[in-house]
Design a protein around this nucleic acid. Structure first.
Lengths: 184, 184
DNA sequence: CGACGAGGAGAATGCCCGTTCTCTCCGCCC
DNA sequence: GGGCGGAGAGAACGGGCATTCTCCTCGTCG
């Protein structure tokens, strides 16, 4: 028998791929079972309901997403460069073949109205991302509103890239960010 | 018996309220029948499937949304003022009690992966909005990339306002737009 | 060696939903 | 008046899905 940790990992990996790729309601527990190779019984032992699995998926994705972003942007030498690197990271993300927009915005649009837990998780994710930009802005010695402006550009790029299927919005957002950064 | 036009209107009104407010998959045809007061038989005569009703809902919303926006922004005396008025209009929209983000982004997130028709409708809506901003930008004698930057700000504000439940993002986006406009 | 408990496979259950069908009624035209 | 076509109400059908249950297997521990 596979270990509990491995089973959890497999389930979360399958759930993330399927939920993100096709939407929360479009994916059934049975499909997650097949994709993960874990029996339905075990699946329900580890995640007592689909709602809890969705929450686990979103929570893990939130942490990983922000870690990857921070690892990429923090590697720059100045706060200004880190700010611009955020948009370079977005560009790489948008280029991934299965890119389909922000998992949290998508989940919010799909279930936010009926599931307070999903709505709150999405809100927390956006707030954490905004907090990161706020830190970078402060480190660069720029006024606080700049963080809001950068967040709006990033958010807009994420949505636009998803719907148009192009990574270009990241480039455009970076141009605008450069102007705002210089003017701030 | 109510006329065909009235029935269609009632159905579309009910569909819009329900689909936008709770999501596409969360609303059943039965609920649209109850809310519209039109029999199921008639509903299926006018819209042969749920998918077609969704398309009709999105198409009507697209037209109306852009008309309202243009009516508001075009009333300004200069192109620059029209551009800034876009964000004022967003502010008013965000303040509506049932505001829940962009119907097209939400629909795309929910069904875009499985329904090419929904994906295409969302894309067309975003493109039309972008076209409007492009026209305003050209009328103001500004370089074309400004339209991309403004679109990203608006898009970001729409998403952020939905998830945070605040209309403030429209204000922040307008500030950034003002800076970009002055710098362009 | 034998009972047992955990685990796997997948059938069963109960519910929801899109779509169609039945039955009935009513207004209209000859 | 009498039949007929369209419309309403709602039941019925078929399928899908979250969740639970059954039955079987197998490793473990006495």
């Amino acid at each position: 028998m596979i270990s509990t940790e491995t089973a959890e990992l497999r389930i979360l990996d399958a759930a993330e791929r399927l939920f993100y790729g096709r939407g929360l309601q479009a994916v059934g527990m049975d499909e997650i079972r097949s994709a993960s190779g874990v029996s339905l019984k075990r699946l329900y032992q580890l995640f007592p309901s689909k709602g809890e699995l969705i929450q686990a998926y979103l929570r893990r994705r939130d942490v990983r997403w922000r870690q990857k972003l921070a690892a990429y942007a923090d590697a720059r030498t100045t706060p200004e460069e880190s700010i611009l690197a955020v948009f370079d990271w977005l560009y790489e993300w948008f280029g991934e073949p299965d890119y389909r927009g922000c998992a949290f915005s998508n989940s919010f649009g799909e279930l936010g109205a009926t599931s307070p837990a999903v709505a709150e998780t999405a809100r927390a994710h956006k707030e954490a991302f905004f907090g990161y930009l706020t830190d970078l802005t402060a480190a660069a010695g720029k006024p606080a509103p700049l963080a809001d402006h950068l967040a709006l550009l990033a958010e807009g790029a994420i949505t636009t890239a998803a719907i148009t299927g192009s990574a270009e919005p990241a480039r455009r957002a970076k141009e605008a960010a450069r102007v705002l950064l210089a003017a701030a």
